[in-house]
């Protein structure tokens, strides 16, 4: 009880990060359904790493005296540009002769992860900042994120509401979509761009680990619980919000790293869903 009242009394400290976490959980949970159904979970992992790399690169450029460049292209913009380029590449280039698509996804993941660590070693504020980029921070979020992330989440929801039938159609049956003259390539690119946009803003605000966890685990848990596609989306949004909010709460009251706490909370929902499924069968 004491912990809870202390938490409530610290309202002014956690209000903003909690808003950011809840909206990130909701939109990642929603987009994650596409990520899981299209079997591109590791594309989303790679995008979170590339986004982290963009943030680290921006800090690095500022550190080596390219502050002018950095103020023109801040961490968000650079992260967004790199993530969009990567998303466009993975959306448009589907065949890689001689090697599998997974191989090229692994290349993106490893190159970006290595880049983040190398740059992290060289940026002025050092290791602590890079840990924040990768694993998230419990303490503060940039004040602009309190508006930016809900704004982008709402924009992405509207796009998905508008193109729901089309995104499901091109994801489930590309061939028939082509036959019916649907702009398959443009729809696939738009879908992945919405993922990239959310990954770019959310990774900068919360870190790569929680964003990846929120994209992958809530939809997986939802797919265990129901066979109704619309309900899968709804449950995934709810699990995403609960994972982010409860993860943040545990991190705050138990002094745990935020990103890890969110990832573990999302994992707990996955395990509960797994047990639910086993019992039901």
């Amino acid at each position: 009880m004491e912990i809870l009242s202390e938490f409530i009394n610290s309202y002014f400290l956690w209000r903003d990060p909690m808003i950011v976490a809840a909206f990130t959980g909701a939109i990642c949970g929603f987009l994650g359904v596409y990520v899981v159904l299209r079997r591109i979970i590791f594309v989303s992992a790679t995008l979170t790493q590339i986004s982290s790399f963009g943030v680290a690169l921006s800090f690095y450029l500022e550190g080596i005296g390219l502050a002018v460049f950095s103020s023109l292209i801040g961490p968000f913009a650079l992260s967004l540009i790199l993530t969009m380029i990567a998303a466009g590449f993975y959306a448009l280039k589907r065949d890689f002769s001689r090697i599998s698509r997974e191989g090229v996804i692994a290349f993106g993941f490893l190159a970006a992860s290595g880049g983040v660590i190398i740059l992290g070693d060289r940026i002025a504020s050092g290791v602590h900042d890079i840990a924040t980029i990768l694993f998230g921070s419990a303490v503060v979020v940039d004040p602009i994120d309190v508006y930016l992330i809900p704004g982008i989440a709402v924009l992405v929801f509207i796009i998905h509401l508008l193109f729901y039938k089309d995104f499901i159609f091109v994801s489930f049956d590309t061939e028939s979509a082509r036959l019916f003259k649907y702009p398959v390539r443009r729809l696939n690119t738009l879908l992945l761009i919405t993922v990239a946009l959310v990954v770019a803003v959310a990774t900068r605000a919360m870190g790569a680990l929680p964003v990846f966890a929120l994209l992958a685990l809530p939809p997986l848990a939802s797919l265990y619980i129901t066979e109704n596609l619309k309900l899968v989306f709804l449950l995934s949004v709810i699990f995403g919000i609960l994972s982010a909010v409860l993860g943040y709460f545990f991190s705050f009251v138990l002094s745990m790293p935020t990103g890890a706490s969110i990832a573990v909370t999302a994992s707990a929902f996955f395990i509960i869903a797994l047990i639910w499924r086993e019992i039901k069968q």
């Binding site: 899981v36 159904l37 079997r39 499901i168 994801s171 489930f172 049956d173 061939e175 028939s176 797919l223 129901t226 066979e227 109704n228 596609l229 899968v232």
Partner: peptide
């Protein structure tokens, strides 16, 4: 099309 071309991961009714 041949029905096995559809990915069974999709819970499509």
């Amino acid at each position: 099309p041949q029905n096995e071309k559809f990915d069974p991961i999709f819970p499509i009714s």
